[in-house]
Design a protein around this nucleic acid. Structure first.
Lengths: 132, 132
DNA sequence: TTTCGATATTCCCTTAAGTATATTACGTTA
DNA sequence: TAACGTAATATACTTAAGGGAATATCGAAA
């Protein structure tokens, strides 16, 4: 699935309609959400938290905190990071990480369908601009 | 529907599971969301933005901004406010406001059902605490 | 015409989330 | 053992959302 820079969706300011977000809560609050999943995918793609963060245009600190949060809340690590070595280290997505990504996208697609479907019940309240 | 203090839901921190929010976007961004609907209901109940704000424990300023935002984005006013008079004035929910409330709760209930249903696909990733 | 309570509006403050930056730790390779 | 690039961690800065308080405005009723 081609999703380059798809995480900017959240900033594409709102044409009228039904919108929403879903996420998976864990023991400490948010476990998996849209941005976290994008981050996991970018870590898989780049093999590095640093590069993933840059390509997402978030700070390394923030990216690292997200990864740490996910790892802490998962029975098995989703991201394995190594420090030092050949190119200073790196990070890779584990099998469990792959599972997490796939599971979330499943939920996500179902949810998009749900929104599309429900949105048909709308229309009455929107439309027609009132001048004041 | 008895929903006293139901707006605290957002603060009830997260037992593991699938979670989400929905809202309706208008021309300027968010038009109707959970908190805004609660606010509308409390305005209907109290006949005043001030009292509604207090009972929701948000500032009058914030409440007023929300009401103004909703009114600006709706073809017809959702809240009619009068200033001055016997008791200083007040605010009431219009027919269109009622419609908005009802419509949102319809979406909301469908969404809760959706979440409950989808959550059954979960379980694999959660469970079992890993000590580190 | 004075009083009263709520709306309407402005200004300043606090707080939290995230950014920016710097430093240390690390381990392979040259 | 020096160099390199990344992880890991700490500290200070920035910014936006909302809170709190102050003030003006309004209109019915006493």
């Amino acid at each position: 699935m081609h999703r380059k820079k798809a995480h900017f969706i959240k900033k594409e300011r709102s044409s009228p309609g039904l919108r929403g977000r879903i996420w998976i809560d864990g023991s400490e609050g948010t476990f998996l959400g849209y941005g976290r999943i994008i981050l996991l995918e970018l870590i898989r793609e780049h093999g590095s938290i640093t590069k993933a963060a840059k390509s997402m245009e978030i700070s390394y600190r923030h990216a690292w905190e997200l990864v740490d949060s996910m790892n802490r809340q998962s029975p098995k690590l989703l991201v394995e990071a190594t420090t030092g070595g050949r190119n200073g280290g790196g990070a890779r997505l584990t099998e469990e990480g792959e599972k997490a990504v796939n599971l979330f996208w499943k939920f996500y697609e179902d949810f998009q369908d749900f929104l599309k479907h429900e949105e048909k019940k709308l229309s009455s309240l929107l439309h027609k601009r009132r001048v004041r």
